[in-house]
């Protein structure tokens, strides 16, 4: 593989590590954006330039920005970071981490069982992706549309503030 892959992979892993160890949520989010960008590079190298673009635009661009705005809206400041510091004690993270390392070991072991000859990366055109999307996967695409719709409606419904009063005469009555 390219050295570029290793660099990108190293950046992705390192920045993800930074994400999961930050106390301040804003820092973590920014590191996550870096991580996502690094993954976008990796995607590009795996012959999926369109996916890389989507990664940057949708993930790093839209979703992360949404999260950042949300955090800003809640105005989580220093006390939140202090609390996070209080929670992240080795006593708490050591067992889950060991468990996950075991899982990783198993995954690595399984991945390394691949005995196929070394071959180059096959590039899949965005056109093929499009053909697949609107060919055999058309139903799934429609379902995804419905899912997004449901997400919008759900977010609107859940995010709505509870209306406290119906009328000024009924101010003291809970609805």
């Amino acid at each position: 593989m390219d050295p570029a892959f290793y660099i990108a992979a190293a950046i992705a892993i390192l920045s993800t590590l930074m994400v999961i160890t930050r106390y301040n949520i804003m820092h973590a989010l920014l590191y996550l954006v870096v991580s996502l960008l690094a993954v976008a590079v990796v995607l590009y190298m795996y012959g999926a330039p369109f996916m890389a673009a989507l990664e940057v635009i949708v993930y790093a661009g839209a979703i992360m920005v949404l999260l950042i705005f949300f955090v800003m809206m809640l105005n989580l400041g220093k006390e939140s970071a202090e609390r996070e510091r209080g929670w992240l004690k080795p006593r708490i993270w050591i067992f889950p981490s060991l468990l996950c390392i075991i899982l990783l070991g198993e995954l690595v072991f399984l991945v390394l069982q691949n005995r196929q000859p070394v071959s180059d990366v096959i590039i899949v055109n965005p056109k093929d992706v499009g053909m697949a999307l609107f060919g055999p996967y058309i139903i799934a695409v429609e379902l995804t549309g419905i899912l997004l719709m449901a997400g919008i409606v759900g977010a609107y419904h859940l995010g709505r503030q509870k209306q406290k009063t119906l009328h000024r005469f009924l101010e003291n009555t809970e609805v």
């Binding site: 609390r83 996070e84 992240l88 708490i92 981490s97 996950c100 995954l107």
Partner: peptide, 16 residues
């Protein structure tokens, strides 16, 4: 795999 497990560790460890 590494990224996935890192995410997993985080979800297990974090309370926020």
């Amino acid at each position: 795999g590494v990224l996935f497990v890192l995410g997993l560790i985080s979800i297990l460890v974090r309370r926020d």
